[in-house]
Amino acid sequence: MLRDFELDMPADLQETLACLPGGTPLAGGTNLLVDLRARRESAERLVWLGNIDAFRDIKIEDGQAAIGGGTTVGDILRHPGMERAAPALVDCARVFGGQMVRNQATLAGNVCSGSPAADSVPPLLSLDAELCLASATQVRTIALDDFYTGFKKNRRSPDELVTGISWPVPGPNTANRFYKLARRKGDAITVVGVAVTVTRDGNTCTDARIALGAVAPTVFRAKEAEALIIGETLTEERVDEAAQKAKELSDPIDDLRASADYRRDMVQVLTRRLLNQAWQSLGEKEAGR
């Protein structure tokens, strides 16, 4: 059973923001209610976000994708434009929880939970997403890359709500991929999650992002690894170096699912694979022109 709490049900965004100081935002509930029931979290007052108008809107225009703070993982999977606007996020959505959880869990909630194994964060980081945060008194944006400050810690202040997430839509010369390694194929907690973005111009990688999940206190970008391939031709050697660097940057723990050593090794394997796949897919496109 859930312990007693108050439940505010504000009618719109303004009311919601007014309720937030002292209240805990409740979106899909797929983390919060589980943690409350297990008594890992406590809350006196929850604030239900489900009445906010147009909170699940998805806009893809002018090279920019923007989703409302209430957008669910299921919404991502169903939206016809997402395959192109966020390939890694779609890869992730297919293996995110089960259908019901996908229909409940919001991207914003997954991002704010701050778990290093939060599945949507590596794809969003690989897409260079930014968050829109609103409070009763101000609205600000913050790069997702600057959002986390430590294990389950982030820069959202208690009176703020993530009202939207946006990112530039990858161009035709950009590949974006995600792989989730887990101990079961369906609905499992991630052992290692890797998302990569590679932009290719002729034989040069002009931009790259590598985001690693479940291998450090927070999901993070392996920027030193990215630096090894930006401006380079992604030969086997370059990719191996970047994968090796990504492994070195990882700082995983041993837990029930896997050892830290295995996780580190898999960062290397998956980073290498995804970079190769991304690079080659772009090469194929070039050749196909």
Binding site: V95, R183, R184, G186, I189, L256
Partner: peptide, 23 residues
């Protein structure tokens, strides 16, 4: 089922992984 000093540390279907439709 993982027991540490006799204590079950995986008492849920998130830790105890029976095959799903995807498996």
């Amino acid at each position: 089922l993982i027991y540490e000093e006799g204590k079950l540390v995986s008492p849920s279907f998130s830790e105890y992984l029976i095959p799903t439709s995807m498996d």
